[in-house]
């Protein structure tokens, strides 16, 4: 049994964005503008733990993206994944979540023995959370979202705990599964220095559209999402007023008057 973690390279959480004529760009003064999607760090950690604690033979990191997404995959290797695979092709550019799901599903079918596929609950850039269930649908596997614990993997079944708004739910289902995990599931480990050094020397294979026998239904042309108007949110206007007064009572009275005026109370 192999466990595959699907990750995405996203802008850093400290990146500063700008929009020019509908084109989005970003930079980071910390010098690292792109990172592993922070939600995916929990997925990577859990994939490594499935190998460590539940008998998976390999933990494999899979990413669809441009060639520079190799950096995110190196982080996964440095954390402890055994292998990394990049799925990249110019025809994939501009894919919506459904197109992405088609591509990832094709890649997962190519990985012999994959039984558990783990996603973060969503990506911090698109924020849709759609891809895990769409991948499951394309593969015909069971989707389980918002997983907060992998309780047991025994034979052909897996028992999971889901974190829902009203409480927790325990689910047992047959393998293979596609799950998305929430941050409560674990505390991601840091990439190790030795891991970084080895990851930098690792060869990460790139699978193209031809490798996956994909000839349509992906890329900007097939996208159902319309990005016709991209703009920066106008800066919020606001002001600060210091309430002056000779005594606390006077200041409080003035403050209460202001709050009434503004219809806050």
């Amino acid at each position: 049994m192999k466990v595959v973690v699907c990750t995405k390279q996203t802008p850093s959480t400290t990146a500063v964005f700008s929009v020019n004529n509908g084109a989005v760009s970003w930079e980071d003064s910390g010098g690292k503008p792109n990172v592993v999607n922070p939600w995916d760090e929990y997925a990577v950690e859990e994939a490594i733990r499935v190998k460590e604690n539940h008998g998976a033979s390999q933990a494999i990191a899979l990413t669809m993206g441009t060639p520079d997404s190799q950096e995110a995959l190196k982080t996964c290797l440095a954390m402890g994944c055994d292998e990394a695979i990049l799925v990249s092709d110019p025809s994939f550019a501009g894919s919506d979540t459904l197109g992405t799901a088609r591509i990832l599903a094709a890649a997962l079918e190519k990985i012999d023995g994959a039984k558990v596929v783990i996603f973060g609950k969503q990506a911090i850039d698109g924020d849709t959370g759609l891809t895990p269930v769409q991948v499951a649908r394309k593969l015909g596997w069971t989707p389980v979202t918002y997983v907060s614990a992998i309780k047991e993997i025994k034979g052909h079944t897996i028992t999971l705990e889901r974190l829902l708004e009203d409480g927790k739910e325990t689910v047992t289902t047959d393998l293979p599964v596609v799950i998305s995990v929430v941050k409560e599931i674990n505390e991601p480990r840091y990439p190790s220095f030795m891991g970084i050094r080895k990851a930098n020397r690792a060869t990460i294979p790139t699978w193209s559209a031809a490798d996956l026998n994909i000839s349509g239904g992906v890329g900007a042309g097939a996208s159902q999402a319309d990005w016709s108007h991209v703009y920066a949110i106008p800066a919020r206007e606001g002001s600060v007023e210091i309430i002056e007064g000779d005594s606390v009572e006077e200041k409080v009275a003035a403050l209460v008057d202001k709050l009434f005026e503004e219809k806050v109370i």
């Binding site: 910390g30 010098g31 690292k32 840091y190 990439p191 220095f193 970084i196 050094r197 930098n200």
Partner: peptide, 14 residues
């Protein structure tokens, strides 16, 4: 170099 920066980033995060 790049690898020094990677080591620095991880240490900074820690």
């Amino acid at each position: 170099q790049t690898e020094h920066d990677q080591i620095r980033q991880i240490t900074r995060r820690f």
